[in-house]
Amino acid sequence: MRGWFRLTVGLLAVVLGALWTVLGLGYVEGSVLTDRRPWALVGVVLVLIGLGALWWGMRARRPGG
Rank of each mutant, 00 (worst) to 15 (best):
48 L>M: 06
39 W>E: 02
34 T>A: 15
47 V>E: 13
61 R>I: 00
63 P>T: 03
52 G>Y: 10
35 D>L: 07
52 G>S: 09
62 R>G: 13
33 L>C: 06
29 E>L: 10
50 G>L: 02
56 W>Y: 10
16 L>H: 06
46 L>P: 02
57 G>R: 00
32 V>G: 12
40 A>Q: 04
57 G>Q: 04
5 F>N: 12
41 L>G: 14
36 R>P: 05
21 T>Y: 03
19 L>T: 08
47 V>H: 04
49 I>F: 09
44 V>H: 02
47 V>C: 03
61 R>P: 01
33 L>M: 11
6 R>H: 14
3 G>A: 10
38 P>C: 01
57 G>C: 06
54 L>E: 15
64 G>N: 01
51 L>V: 15
17 G>C: 00
25 L>V: 06
23 L>F: 03
46 L>F: 05
3 G>K: 09
64 G>R: 03
21 T>Q: 10
19 L>Q: 12
18 A>C: 04
57 G>V: 08
28 V>G: 04
22 V>P: 00
17 G>I: 01
59 R>M: 08
23 L>T: 00
23 L>E: 14
23 L>M: 05
22 V>E: 01
40 A>H: 06
61 R>Q: 15
31 S>I: 05
61 R>L: 01
10 G>E: 11
46 L>G: 00
25 L>Q: 10
51 L>M: 13
51 L>H: 04
34 T>R: 07
42 V>Q: 13
45 V>P: 01
65 G>D: 02
64 G>V: 01
42 V>D: 14
56 W>K: 08
17 G>F: 00
16 L>A: 08
53 A>R: 07
36 R>I: 02
51 L>W: 08
56 W>F: 06
23 L>V: 01
2 R>Q: 12
25 L>E: 11
60 A>V: 00
20 W>Y: 12
30 G>H: 03
8 T>L: 10
42 V>C: 10
14 V>W: 02
52 G>R: 07
46 L>C: 04
23 L>W: 01
45 V>E: 12
21 T>V: 01
51 L>S: 03
24 G>S: 08
22 V>W: 01
5 F>A: 15
20 W>E: 03
5 F>T: 15
7 L>W: 08
22 V>M: 00
19 L>P: 06
15 V>S: 11
26 G>D: 04
16 L>W: 09
8 T>K: 06
63 P>S: 07
63 P>M: 05
28 V>Y: 09
7 L>P: 07
19 L>A: 09
65 G>E: 00
5 F>I: 15
58 M>H: 13
27 Y>G: 03
48 L>A: 15
26 G>F: 07
32 V>C: 09
56 W>L: 11
20 W>T: 00
14 V>R: 02
5 F>W: 13
8 T>Y: 05
59 R>V: 14
45 V>I: 13
11 L>F: 11
6 R>K: 15
32 V>S: 14
28 V>R: 11
47 V>S: 05
16 L>Q: 09
48 L>F: 03
31 S>H: 14
15 V>I: 15
15 V>W: 08
9 V>S: 13
28 V>A: 11
62 R>I: 04
17 G>R: 00
8 T>I: 09
24 G>Y: 03
31 S>E: 13
10 G>L: 08
51 L>Y: 02
27 Y>C: 05
56 W>N: 13
10 G>P: 08
35 D>W: 06
